[in-house]
Design a protein around this nucleic acid. Structure first.
Lengths: 205, 205
DNA sequence: TAAAGTGTCAAACGATCGTTTGAGACTATC
DNA sequence: GATAGTCTCAAACGATCGTTTGACACTTTA
């Protein structure tokens, strides 16, 4: 129950996230979208300029939060003597899982997985320019903790970890929470699975 | 140089695979597609009935070959005493890598990755009905080789392996072959990376 | 109170989509 | 040589797309 009604911009962004996750960027039309948001068709172009700019805003809103938390988590442990691989993976994975269980945030991971599959150059450039430093910093920390790996080996493994996490967090095959498990417990179990899997794949001899 | 010209159906299927990989199922129009294939616009509906049926045929053509090879590889080793986890993973991964390096087959893995991201129910049902038995059989063999894992643990890990392989084989971040390495060598290196990573992720304690 | 700014609305724009049509070319059958 | 079947072709169909327009209501500024 929201006593203060959402602004038109916020209603559009919310509906866009849901419909982009369900039907893709092309598949979700502005007519569907504005109808779902309860606003006029012309509102998207008035407030965002174009559909493409709306798509960018959908990303920016969630990724600023997501990667901000990731960098904050990494900053707490990076470079320390006692830091483990699991710690670094936790800093990368847990913010995404928290987002997944926050309102419509879970749908955003589906939107993100779509963006990866699209191979769209404009979108990739946008993601790389705005958030590329996050992956670079995490990779640097992995390199410090896995000194026995060559640069090529490490890149391979980090790439495979990225694929596994994107796939899992997009909810493609995510195992459903049972009714006798609290959501918090389930989230912790999911994080544990992901982290242990990734750590094993990254660090094997 | 093909002395025997391809049939209209084959030209459409070839062009469809390329354009679906590049622009997606919605993004690639029949007008682009038929122009690239050098055939008339109406040829798609004449030979395939509709765009959706064309999409199904694009999948069927490659997946029959791919999963046929996977099942043949699995049949050679399934249930044997001396079979290793790496053997089973090899039977699953190598046919996909061979496809990736065969003509336009590499683009098909991108098409497949798109299909996963789409979450389209019709397509998922089609894939599950026609090729679901392949994943079930491989999972059964994994279960035999990893008896210490609970059913839930195993499903989690197999799902994460699937994500990593789909991601990697779609060529998203696949490390480029260097010019001083033969294609065959590079393919073997890729298979080795994937198999070792997946084996570590599946079997860790 | 007049002017300027902000936001919403129905309606229309031109473009592009998947699909259908009907005429015509070609081959095989009788 | 007429007939039936297979295939190709240009053209058009209706639908839907993202975007633009101009009128109108409301608030803020002067």
């Amino acid at each position: 129950m929201q006593s203060i009604p959402q602004s038109t911009k916020e209603r559009i962004l919310g509906a866009a996230e849901v419909l982009f996750a369900q039907h893709g960027f092309d598949g979700a039309s502005l007519r569907q979208l504005t109808a779902a948001a309860g606003v006029n068709l012309a509102a998207v172009n008035y407030h965002f300029g174009s559909k493409d700019r709306l798509i960018e805003e959908v990303f920016r809103r969630r990724l600023d939060e997501l990667n901000g938390r990731r960098m904050a988590g990494l900053a707490r442990i990076a470079g320390l003597e006692e830091t483990t691989l699991e710690d670094v993976l936790g800093a990368f994975i847990r913010p995404a899982l928290e987002l997944s269980h926050d309102g419509n945030g879970s749908l955003f991971m589906r939107v993100l997985a779509r963006a990866f599959a699209e191979h769209d150059d404009t979108l990739r450039k946008f993601l790389s320019e705005n958030y590329g430093h996050v992956m670079r910093q995490f990779t640097a920390e992995f390199a410090r903790l896995l000194p026995h790996l060559s640069k090529e080996e490490l890149y391979w493994r980090v790439d495979l970890v990225t694929g596994a996490l994107t796939h899992a967090m997009s909810g493609f095959g995510m195992i459903q929470r049972k009714s006798d498990v609290t959501e918090r417990t389930h989230r912790e179990q999911a994080a544990s699975h992901l982290i242990r899997f990734a750590a094993a794949g990254l660090s094997h001899p």
